[in-house]
Design a protein around this nucleic acid. Structure first.
Lengths: 142, 142
DNA sequence: GTCCATGCAAACGGTTTGCATAAGG
DNA sequence: CCTTATGCAAACCGTTTGCATGGAC
């Protein structure tokens, strides 16, 4: 059996087509979509699926540790199927969000631990800037 | 005259008691309050002030660069009078937010720049963990 | 006196919830 | 069959907006 169905079974959860589709969509994209974006993307294939189901499924997947929620500073959340911690970069021009997989920042937890009496368990790092496309467009504007 | 009134004058803004009180409150606290918390804290002194004014004032102060908005992952925003970039730490137990002033992480922008074709302009770092009080309480629970 | 700010209430938008129906195991 | 998930609509909650009144300059 595959890991996913076992994980669902262990938690008394049903592996419905909607859940499968949402998780698969997240696995297959690098775009860190919002719930709304996922809903719109899957609508052609699952025209009866409701936005509420997308939200409920995302929360289920987060509890399972399969998905993480990002807070880039917009008014909504974005979602990422990779649950390991890794930095993200947000374009201030167009709002797109990318991973910076190669950048390894786990050591900053240890460093920060020296400066606080909190017991640090995790961290999130967001970079902000302009993506290649928006840089090009900015040059064009001048 | 003081810097604040000059800054307001330059921008054709009026330095009203409400604006003054909100900014002063933020300068005097380390608690990174939400708009609602600011509203409640000032209510005894400014009973007629509305929550809408708090929001409008905060946005004004952000535009002036006097205040920054934090996104700790809750459903609301928090505000900080120090506008220079510095890391924050969030307690997963009680939700309090503290600064980690001594930790200097500006160099990570340069490091990250090597791994992306974005033009990086800033970054935000959030640590998550348990504050001293919540650690103590957790021990008491067992 | 002019123009911007305040305060109220209503609107807004993303997210959650309640509940009857549908469908996975 | 039993139990959990779905889909719909309504509720929720933080934040924003429109507008008439009030106050800073």
């Amino acid at each position: 059996m595959n890991k996913l169905s076992n994980l669902f079974k262990e938690n008394n959860l049903k592996l419905t087509p909607q859940r499968y589709a949402i998780y698969n969509y997240l696995l297959g994209t690098k775009s860190h979509p919002s719930a709304e974006m996922i809903y719109e993307a899957l609508r052609p294939h699952y025209p009866t699926m409701s936005l509420a189901t997308v939200y409920k499924t995302l929360n289920t997947l987060i509890e399972l540790g399969l998905v993480q929620q990002l807070n880039v500073g917009e008014d909504n959340f974005r979602f990422d199927a990779k649950s390991e911690s890794h930095p993200h970069i947000v374009c201030l021009g167009c709002g797109r969000v990318d991973d910076i997989d190669e950048l390894e920042l786990d050591h900053i937890n240890q460093i920060a631990q020296k400066y606080t009496n909190y017991k640090i368990s995790s961290s999130k790092v967001y970079f902000y800037g302009l993506c290649a496309e928006c840089q090009a467009q900015e040059k064009g504007d001048r």
